[in-house]
Design a protein around this nucleic acid. Sequence first.
DNA 1: TTGGAATGTCAACAAGGCTGACGTAAACTG
DNA 2: CAGTTTACGTCAGCCTTGTTGACATTCCAA
Lengths: 168, 168
Amino acid sequence: MSESRSGISGENLLFLTDEQLRQGIEAMFFAYRGFTADPDRILAGMAYGRAHHRAIHFINRAPGTTVNNLLSILGVTKQSLNRVLRTLIADGLVESRVGQSDKRERHLYLTDDGRALEQKLSDAQRARMRAAFRDAGPEAVAGFRTVLEAMMDAEMQRTYTRLKETGS
Amino acid sequence: MSESRSGISGENLLFLTDEQLRQGIEAMFFAYRGFTADPDRILAGMAYGRAHHRAIHFINRAPGTTVNNLLSILGVTKQSLNRVLRTLIADGLVESRVGQSDKRERHLYLTDDGRALEQKLSDAQRARMRAAFRDAGPEAVAGFRTVLEAMMDAEMQRTYTRLKETGS
DNA sequence: TTGGAATGTCAACAAGGCTGACGTAAACTG
DNA sequence: CAGTTTACGTCAGCCTTGTTGACATTCCAA
């Protein structure tokens, strides 16, 4: 099950060696640390953490999203999300509007302050991503995205694609 | 600073637009969830969490590593790591041997039980990685690794490379 | 022999997950 | 219209995993 399987079939499968997979695993681990490092540093000063960043990111990405929708994107419980949203709303970074057609729903929007923080955080995160993309080149970037997409749960893959199409 | 910069230079820089970067960011977010999902599920049953998995992984990867070395790989405080190590040692998954040349140091090894758990966890994680690699193909995998490496902090890049060379 | 390094441990705390229970208002449904 | 379901909020309590600060021990090295 965890045997090396080099060069047994027609194509070259050396990239599927356990050693290669392990390197991929470690690359994910170390890279994710870098990925979150810059926004984390900014947030450390304030009373916010990574969870706030995620909420702000996806509210900005899909303005007017409902709480339930955000919940399914973030993959946490409503209690967990609520704790974060409560502080963001209290601090005037997020606005929660009662739905028009369905008044049970709350639609979430960033305020001007919220957008300002979002900019600051994603500028920092994008700067690193941009440097990495530039260093690696367009073909490496395409491969990067292909592998990441294949690594997602099926449901998250759909969410990711939906967001991608909404974006541009 | 966060302006789109498409097609201004000689080469095609469309892959560096803010929209592309944002998609990269979201891909990392969703993929990392998938990346940790399988081991997390296994660990949920036991009294262990992701921190235990990480410790076990790197002790297996570099048997005999000192606590300090592990600390710098994992990037947490000694108190945090110690809490994890203590339970692993108490449960007989990790063995801590006093150093021979320097008796202040503790060298860490997996026991047979520890190796068994490591196998179980990394089998699960590798299965997903293998499927993703296979779907994406060798060139995408190469790109994936190039971008991830460029995304790491410089220090982690060195750690990653050192481990990589030790491995094979 | 003394200072500093490596390690371990105690205490306290915070972020951010989780479950369970409960309440309210709105919408849906028979 | 009555009853059920849905969306959301909230309280209480728990867990893991991170943090600081303080302090003890052991041992190497100047």
